[in-house]
Structure formats: C-alpha cells, structure tokens
Design a protein around this nucleic acid. Structure first.
Lengths: 110, 110
DNA sequence: TTGTTATTTCAAAAAAAATTGAAACAGGTG
DNA sequence: CACCTGTTTCAATTTTTTTTGAAATAACAA
C-alpha cells in the first residue's frame, strides 16, 4: 500500500511539487555539514566563553587561563578547536602566543 | 613570581579595568550554557535537515522519514531533540503526528 | 649546561551522543 | 479479538567528544 498520509498535508505537499519538489529546495549536503560543524564548535560553554573573552581583548594563553581557570592541556585543546574553525588565531610574539578573534569569529561571538 | 605577560597586552588589559574588568563584561554562565545547548541541538546534520524540511512544510513522521531516509527510531530520536529544544512541535491529527516548525524554530532554520 | 616559563602534544580514561533492533503502544480495520 | 499502521521507547552497543596527567618542545636566562 502506497504510504498513506493525512489528506490536508497531501494537498499542501502536492502544491509544492510533491516531496521531490520540496526536497529540491533544501540546502545541499555539504552546506548543511558545514553549518553543523560550526554549531559543533560552538556547542561547548568553555569555547563560547573563550571566544567571547578573546573578542573583548587579544590575550596570551596564560591570561586566558587565568580568566577561564582550567588546566593547560584542556585550554589548549579548546583553543585548537576554535582556531581550526577559523574563529580565532594565535600568533607567536616573543615568549607568548597571543590569541585574537578573527573577522569571521567576530560574527559569531556574542 | 606574579604571572608575567607581554607588555602591550598588559597595557591594553589595564585600560579595560584589568582582567577582572574584562571578565565582568562577559555573558553570564547560564546564558552561555543556553547558547551552547542550542548549538548542540543544531550540531547534527540530520537535525538541521529535518528542521529545514519541516520549516518548508509541516509533515507527518512518515513523510519526513521518506525524505530523510533513516530508521524510525533514529528519526524519532532526532525529532525529540528538536522538539525539546522548542524548534519544532508535533501534534497528533487522526492517525498521524504532524511536526511543524515553531516561531522560535523559524529564526534558526536556514 | 641546567633550569624555567609558556604552551602543545599524546595516550589513556571518562563522559556524552548517536545508532541499532526489538518491544511497546495507541488507534484504527477485518 | 487479532492484526495493521504510525510512532515512540528502551537497553545495548558504537562512536565521538572531553578530560586528565605526563611528556615534549621551544625560547630564553643563570
């Protein structure tokens, strides 16, 4: 039996070109995957906090650590995820690495 | 020794009221957690696809399933996460449950 | 050289999220 | 009643993410 569906829905769907027509209007796989990826990066409270902090003020890891109060390796892990996503970037200055928000990151912070 | 930091950073931080001053301007814990939670919900491609689909057209589970092509229980699992987040809502009509996007969900879809 | 600071990397363990398949349930129909 | 259909729930498993602590690295200072 060919998939029964509620009548009003059937009609609405028909008007939009059937399920195929509707499906055609959806974003394609890779743009959905990119969107999901960005949400994944921002799905952790620590990372949001770090991104917010760094977008208020570029900081060395040691000052970020002081503000966020987590272990070095944990901080480094989250910084690397933010950096890989292109939201922040770290550059070596003398003894320190200064992380700052990128243009792209600014759109997402706050 | 009291935490050495790069001199230019130290000065910029000083101008903003020190680390304490900067930290005070950050969103509070619970609003950050809420934000993270919403990103977590949208961090899965299947869920984004379902949300997009349902916001084009309210649909019964059986038609969503046809469009997305995953198992019943998997679909149900993701629907429940979207619903719990307030992005979609399912209401029983006769034999079927019709899911539709909420006002809140519309802001996030696409 | 030895030591020290700032930061990352790595492997192991722990925690969280997603998938699976079977079972349950509710509302109809024969 | 026995049987579908549409959908959810549950427990077990798998996969992914996060946390931990130790070790590595790089640069510089004694």
């Amino acid at each position: 039996m060919l998939l029964e569906v509620p009548e009003p829905i059937r009609k609405q769907v028909e008007k939009k070109g059937g399920m195929k027509g509707i499906i055609l209007t959806l974003p394609d796989k890779s743009s959905i995957e990119n969107e999901a990826l960005m949400h994944k990066v921002l799905s952790n409270p620590l990372r949001i906090r770090i991104l917010n902090l760094v977008s208020k003020q570029s900081l060395c890891v040691c000052l970020i650590k002081q503000a966020i109060d987590i272990s070095d390796s944990k901080l480094s892990y989250h910084l690397s995820i933010l950096e890989e996503a292109g939201l922040i970037v770290g550059t070596k200055k003398q003894n320190w690495i200064i992380y700052e928000v990128t243009h792209f990151g600014k759109e997402h912070a706050l």
